[in-house]
Design a binder for these strands. Structure first.
Lengths: 106, 106
DNA sequence: TACATTTGCAACCGATTGGTTTCATAATAA
DNA sequence: TTATTATGAAACCAATCGGTTGCAAATGTA
């Protein structure tokens, strides 16, 4: 299976599921009502999301509530952070160039 | 084809490419040296990244330099922003509950 | 107990994915 | 000119994806 968060959020249905359960936990049945696909298809998506720990399950009788795992979502943010750092450095280098030019003027 | 950024960053090779060209533009040949796959495979990845405008090309003679399109990367950040807002609201609601409890004490 | 509900799993299927090899084109070098 | 280099496109292939249907297990209700 070998799934990771980036593969998990690649599918639009899974992104929609994450958004739905972000504000409150939901059951697979309740989630399936929001999509054109079958309940089983939604169940499969939930399995993938659970595999990479983007969601956690809470059993309540025969119902299972799926909830967003916020900490895992932040892992995507962490990946983006790499790029932010590079952009900042790029701007810093630009600053240095500008400073050098400024000093040469004197 | 119908590709979007989330599908684009789902592949680990493509994420590595983005990271490599984040600091400086690179040619397909130079990029391919960093991977175990063929140059053509890297070329295919670049095509996908270009299709969803995550990279832009700069021709220089017979070489083509691929460069990261920063603005497009921020679109991923924008998607994450939705979740940040929901989390903030959740905390605000918790604040309200705590405030209500506090006021009831008086 | 008998029945309905909620859920996950397995088997299957067509479409897509990421890789390969081969070929064509354009720019540079000899 | 001729050869070399850099690149993209096309054809093909095994593996994976996202969907379906059917079934089994567990819980709740009559």
């Amino acid at each position: 299976m070998r799934r990771d968060i980036f593969q998990a959020i690649a599918d639009p249905t899974r992104r929609a599921i994450l958004l739905l359960i972000a504000s409150q936990a939901m059951t697979p049945n309740a989630l399936a009502e929001h999509f054109d696909t079958s309940r089983q298809a939604v169940s499969k998506h939930l399995r993938i999301l659970a595999e990479c720990q983007l969601v956690k399950q809470k059993q309540s009788g025969r119902e299972i509530y799926y909830q967003l795992e916020v900490s895992k979502m932040k892992q995507i943010d962490l990946w983006l952070e790499q790029f932010r750092k590079i952009w900042e450095n790029r701007f810093n280098e630009l600053d240095n160039v500008l400073l050098t030019l400024k000093n040469k003027k004197k």
